[in-house]
Design a protein around this nucleic acid. Structure first.
Lengths: 155, 155
DNA sequence: ATTACAAATGCACAAGCTTCTCATTTCCAC
DNA sequence: GTGGAAATGAGAAGCTTGTGCATTTGTAAT
């Protein structure tokens, strides 16, 4: 009920609405809100549950099923990337066009990104040697970040 | 009835009952049988379900819960490695002491292994640069293997 | 603006994988 | 052998993800 915003100002949707539409998807409130959360979240990598909780915190009436549906559609449209770090659940991040790999702290969960062209190159060579046409790859380094930076070293 | 090896050449990465005991685990029938299956399976990467089905085929009365429990314990003991390729479920492989990465065919699911020291080295350097103490890493290349080799290009 | 229709959503439920619970059984030291 | 802790089996539960269907929403034509 109380969620009738007088006007949807699209000034901040100059990029996203276009992209949703370009993907052949209707520009609906859930999709816009989810995209906003992905953009505004200080954590670059969020799970579907994270998005859902953020929606609830913003008093949006959007179901978890829709979150999964939309994230999967966004993935198919290339708007977001889905990563499967160890531990079972997926995390999503906005696709800003720059490929990168990840290094994850196994203690605090912090995720940093990196790119290394020499690794990329070797991967292409290896795929060729093995007779594979490379489609994608996933490189994740797990480690412990320096204690001073580690926010919550629980237990 | 136990098949015991005359010599204990554990250095060659061969996992055996001694290793179970060394991990602080009792040498029980389920654990021995699961280890046997991991060793004798021609597929190097098997899921918990695969192990379970193989046990059923061998007329062993071992529950799926036990399979998961044992595999997790083996992982903790370093006897097996758990890999989480894209798609949700984990696969396990015997830890024969040789680290390697994987290249997976997204069409037929075939998994090949490779090692590249230059990539390994760059990863260590990157972890150091980022202030991480490296604990593990996962590199998976996804691609399409050459059609002639691709066993079941269904659909 | 209004209308009309296909697309999208919300809800509840279902599926698949993995883990937990707990009564019963098994291994191992004595 | 025997005792007791550890391990197991069967089923239930948990978690993430996906589906079916009635209802709502976006969009394009009126």
């Amino acid at each position: 009920m109380a969620r009738f915003t007088p006007r949807q100002d699209e000034q901040e949707g100059l990029v996203e609405n276009q992209d949703i539409r370009k993907a052949g998807l209707k520009v609906t409130l859930p999709r816009v809100k989810i995209l906003e959360i992905l953009e505004n979240s200080e954590a670059r990598h969020v799970s579907a549950e994270d998005v859902y909780k953020q929606l609830l915190a913003n008093d949006e009436e959007i179901g978890l099923a829709t979150v999964y549906r939309v994230l999967t559609q966004f993935e198919g449209a290339g708007l977001v990337e889905r990563h499967q770090f160890d531990g079972g659940h997926s995390v999503f991040e906005l696709n800003r066009g720059t490929h990168h790999d990840h290094i994850v702290c196994i203690r605090c969960g912090k995720v940093e990104e990196f790119v290394d062209e020499s690794i990329e190159k070797r991967q292409r060579e290896i795929a060729t040697e093995k007779g594979f046409e490379i489609a994608d790859h996933s490189l994740v380094i797990y480690g412990e970040c320096k204690k001073e930076n580690c926010p919550n070293l629980k237990e």
